[in-house]
Design a protein around this nucleic acid. Structure first.
Lengths: 353, 353
DNA sequence: CCAGGTCTGTGAAGCGTTTCAAACCATAGG
DNA sequence: CCTATGGTTTGAAACGCTTCACAGACCTGG
């Protein structure tokens, strides 16, 4: 009665053999029903399918991949599931994988090298078709390059491969920095501050580079750089507090922060400073388009990263590379996607002074 | 020179056989070096290990699990990676798995039944040791119960199994509702509103239940219930706008919202209403301890869910159940964890009126 | 010098699949 | 009635690994 077949305690799961016996056909036929249904007479197929249903047979992926010599899975290692950018990337990667009939296995490394290595090793043992991996800095890259399983295509995400041994999909952080700065200048700001993080974070360094590029085009704009310890809300808060008096003094009228959390902290600090108005006295632009940006009391302008595109494109590149295995003609490509500016209240309109 | 062995294009990956040949030992010995190093003489072991390194040999998990008859992996299906609660659960599950020497495979279903089924099927084929799965409502449970692979332990998370066929780890939403309401009453509020979501969401229904339980203990408190279409920020915003005038009129002095997003929307709407002060005129408590709650201009009191504990405990229960496979003495347990109140500015201190 | 015991290392069997050459069967044409 | 013809079905081989009963080497004490 129950669709769930009661399996005797001692009995292990049914195999093709059991199905074949029940349907009174050979092993090969059962396999054909599963993989080449058209090669089997309709009524034989029906008999086999009934047997499969009765036994609750589920193919064993391990056995299949053993004989096939490859799996139908790709692995993705992300560095921080708490950051919505990486969730977007995961989403994109999943859709890219699905497009090629593959399934995605997701692993979270918390940006810790030993966890990255462990997951890499695990994926290698699982003989995944390929591995997607987000990376934040050069140190991690080196560690990864050392242990990366040869023979398994690896595509780097959110990072530009310094060597031509890997494909990569990155977002143009310099362009993002340029866009943010340009925007501040275009709405009339002339005294800018870049608030960045530690030098180890390559993306932050690149964003600052874009900041300076935009400035180079506008000699009339003055600029300075503040480097907090990290790029969280708390860091933003203390930077904001420090800057408040100078803003009131008119020495600063535009802030570009290297992350939305940083920007949100700054906005929070400034909002609670009597007399400072955003965006009238100072315009603020963040980076990432995190929830923190639109969730802020004063919604914050930001640079949005195309996370889903990064993931999807990475998955596609991976499949391309996997298909070209052994074919020496494959050239690793380093794709760089453009971010885009999202204007919100924190930098709306032009200067009121 | 390079630690990465250049594999000839046509040649496939090395197997135990290749290692054995190079090290001049038998297959069994290589296997022993890998799995029972103590059964092998130190220098034989060294020879084998050198061969492994030279060839860049990586064991094939499929072949191993085929002969072993089981894998060392457990699967987790979460319904929404954008919600930090589920990320917490994933973290906990990972640590619980690790504790038992297992690895976690993470899949995201976006709360769509067809994706849940697909992942369930995929895990079944992969012969995972067991499956952890977050569930939001009874409809999903029924769909899942229909397709759940028999023979693979399944533990439900964030959901209380209505039947005794599954273990489950849930959070006591009624208690959470009770705690929130009790808190509002204790800081002196007497005219409360519960803002909930649609009836399909069991957790919301339970939270409301707790609301009424607390009220029953305090006949002097009046209460009403508002049911927006959904529980997002936008819904909160419109509820807040509606309620503003009544708050000014003194008809309402405490709000318990079924989610932090809802609460954040309400706070946002009220903050922009001239004359309404939080918490002086109205105290607000949310639910979930999402980023939205502490990120709000006025940090919002909330009920924090022990997501990591849910995940970790789930993983442990799963291992217990897997170990007891076939042993009829295993009783499925339905664990219910208590949430806890986090007081922030939105309900700080006592009434000022 | 030999019986008995202790370690090491061996190699065949088997795990659940897919594939592919060969066997089978029925039908149609000569 | 015999032989091609073509579509179905068969079953052995192979995938990479672990296990386990055994063989070989070495040592110990009598």
């Amino acid at each position: 009665m129950s669709p769930v077949p009661a399996r005797l305690p001692g009995k292990s799961r049914p195999s093709v053999g059991d199905v074949a016996a029940l349907a009174d056909v050979s092993l090969g036929t059962v396999s054909n029903v599963l993989n080449h249904p058209d090669k089997v007479t309709p009524d034989t197929r029906a008999r086999v399918e009934r047997a499969i249903a009765m036994l609750g047979y589920v193919p064993n992926a391990a056995a299949r991949s053993l004989v096939m010599g490859s799996t139908t899975t790709i692995g993705l290692i992300v560095s921080d599931l708490d950051n919505s950018l990486f969730v977007d990337i995961a989403r994109g990667a999943e859709s890219g994988a699905e497009h090629g009939g593959l399934t995605l296995m997701l692993a979270n490394s918390d940006a810790r090298i030993e966890r990255e290595s462990a997951h890499l090793a695990m994926f290698a043992q699982a003989r995944v078709r390929g591995i997607l991996m987000t990376l934040n800095d050069a140190a991690h890259f080196e560690a990864v390059a050392r242990v990366a399983p040869s023979g398994t295509p690896l595509v780097l995400l959110n990072f530009s491969a310094p060597t031509s041994h890997y494909c990569s999909v990155d977002v143009d952080n310099a362009l993002g920095g340029y866009l943010a700065t340009k925007h501040l200048i275009e709405i009339g700001r002339r005294r800018l501050v870049f608030v960045g993080g530690p030098r180890e974070l390559q993306p932050v360094v690149d964003r600052e580079k874009g900041f300076h590029t935009a400035l180079a085009e506008h000699p009339e704009v003055t600029a300075e750089v503040v480097t907090p310890e990290w790029i969280n809300r708390a860091d933003g808060w203390s930077v904001g507090s420090h800057l408040a008096s100078r803003i009131l003094a008119g020495e600063i009228d535009g802030i570009f922060a290297a992350s939305d959390l940083l920007a949100a902290g700054i906005v929070q600090a400034l909002s609670s400073t009597v007399g400072v108005r955003i965006p009238e006295h100072v315009a603020v632009v963040g980076y990432d388009n995190n929830q923190a940006a639109w969730d802020s009391p004063i919604p914050i302008s930001t640079i949005a990263q195309p996370g889903e595109d990064v993931g999807r494109l990475g998955a596609l590149l991976l499949q391309e590379e996997a298909a070209a295995q052994g074919d020496a003609t494959h050239r690793h490509s380093a794709v760089v996607l453009p971010p885009r500016l999202v204007v919100r209240q924190s930098s709306a309109g032009s200067r009121t002074v």
